[in-house]
Design a protein around this nucleic acid. Sequence first.
DNA 1: TCCCGAAGTCAACAGGTGTTGGCCTACACT
DNA 2: AGTGTAGGCCAACACCTGTTGACTTCGGGA
Lengths: 187, 187
Amino acid sequence: MRRSAEVTKAAILAAARERFATDGYEKATIRAIATDANIDPSMVMRYFGNKDRLFAAAAEFDLDLPDLNAIPRDQVGTALVRHFLTRWQADDALQILLRTGVTNEAAAERTRVVFAAQLAPLIIHLVGDPGQAPTRAALVASQMLGMALCRYILRFPPAVAMSDDEVIAWMSPTIQNYLTGERPDPH
Amino acid sequence: MRRSAEVTKAAILAAARERFATDGYEKATIRAIATDANIDPSMVMRYFGNKDRLFAAAAEFDLDLPDLNAIPRDQVGTALVRHFLTRWQADDALQILLRTGVTNEAAAERTRVVFAAQLAPLIIHLVGDPGQAPTRAALVASQMLGMALCRYILRFPPAVAMSDDEVIAWMSPTIQNYLTGERPDPH
DNA sequence: TCCCGAAGTCAACAGGTGTTGGCCTACACT
DNA sequence: AGTGTAGGCCAACACCTGTTGACTTCGGGA
């Protein structure tokens, strides 16, 4: 039986997301993705052109960050940590960025853009000096991505063993400080 | 002119470290490594057996962590952040772990072992309850690796732009808290 | 001086990769 | 019922990968 082009395209995209998320860019082969989607590899090329463009389509997504201004200022850290944990477990999107961004420049660029375009703007309204927003966003990203790396990618046993609530309890003060804490002076 | 076996082996190892650090496991080809070392690919096999064993040899290293007991308790965070920054920039070792550990299971295992064996023991003497050491080590690792990821691998512009002293100033309180702070209770 | 082992090269293998173009075939429309 | 077309398959391409085994050549000890 046949499928419509749309359905097949969606199946390919879903298979591609899963492969990129678990294997990284180079180990996720077009042949494997095609097999997962029950289709011939050549169809992947027909619908997406080449591997780079398939990846671009698979890596398109939103962080869906909550509006930090609608949250009491002192609970912004907790809210953000909780959101990232949910977001991470909801689908493969963040896993794709992390697994591919480390070895593929285009993927790294995508990761930079996602965080710069979606995280930094939210922070601007939290801090007095807008010039500090990118730095604070980078600090937040470093802790969020770092924990995701240890927990979901490298699978450090203690990081895996922690409950979501424990992770939130430990990380919230850190993130809260990066978001709203006073800027420390280096000396 | 000829080289001794030791010299050639060292040249291969140096080339391998550089390639693994910048390209990751799968993109670092034996052929490229051999070319860098001015040798035929078959020599790599002769000296190291296969790619897995070459990687194992290239990824062997120490974190060289300072003795945290010789440092005033309230400066332990700063000392550790500063050390990691130095260690990161000293050679390719940490970059190898991060670049390869994300897509290669053997490399991930190596990373787990390095942090579990070298970081956790240092922390035991810092906290009253030894059972907390692995969790605290994982938290420290998450922030350290996360910043390294953003700064050296993904190259987030704001993370790259920060001076070492700024990074230390921002991260020290976080690490200090993970090391010696009271355990928060999740609810 | 001879010669043997170590250092190094060369060519090939079997398998995997992205990518291409030609071919088939089911099915909605006239 | 006939047919054009969109969905799909197959076989091949050029190239790259880890790995192997046979071959050459240098250099130090007898």
